[in-house]
Design a binder for these strands. Sequence first.
DNA 1: GTAGGGTTAG
Length: 283
Amino acid sequence: MWNAIISGHFRNGDWNDVVDVFKHMLEVGEPFDQITLVSVVTACGRIGDAKLGEWIGRYAEENGMMGNRNLVTALVDMYAKCGELAKARRLFDGLQLKDVVAWSAMISGYTQADQCQEALALFSRMQATKLEPNDVTMVSVLSACAVLGALETGKWVHSYVRRKHLPLTVVLGTALVDFYAKCGCIDSAVEVFKSMPVKNSWTWTALIKGMASNGRGREALELFSSMREAKCEPTDVTFIGVLLACSHSGLVEEGRWHFNSMTQDYGIQPTMAVWWIFWGGLV
DNA sequence: GTAGGGTTAG
């Protein structure tokens, strides 16, 4: 029953509630099992609770639970998200049978820690094992390619996605759009965008920012109005793209208008990045 | 009816 409650919070993304329920269980001496620990340690990674995460890591080692691949993978993910890449890698290397989830967790760990070269190096090693990457693996690989400007590798990933008929999920599609836009291939970014069956705010934002950073401010603003017609809610990052578009294209009046609309119509408070763009080009 | 990995920021 406790696991079911924790699972509910987990699926809702309420990581703090997951941790709170577990701490309550410890306080009242409620028994838990490995399934409990998998959820809790994953939540620890999401909220950066390294203290509890490491406590669970020690508990799992001392109680002979390291044969549980789900638990070890969750620990790899937690250590990586808490910035403990070496600890994550040690556990990952110790996994006797690494499946696609374990590989994806370690690759995404490097990408999220800004160690994109390491991420691609690990991806090469994964390919050498003949284990097939899936759509989730490719999201992290594309993110690393985008940061490094590794155009050829990213293009290869795109062709792999098509060849193997990996599902063009909203997250994978967004990663492709972002990758092409960051490499300056706006036409390819638009092509992927158009081919996506489902788009969300992140997808629109990736293309708007891509247009803006490639000097196509007017088209970025047109995309922003299409986004609203599509009833897709803009986020604070969307407005970074919109204001960047105005700033780069010298559309000062429109930029000020969007800035006001952001706070008044959407209730989004300007973040530090927004102030930088505003004071840099729209005053 | 309970378990691991993913995308946007001048």
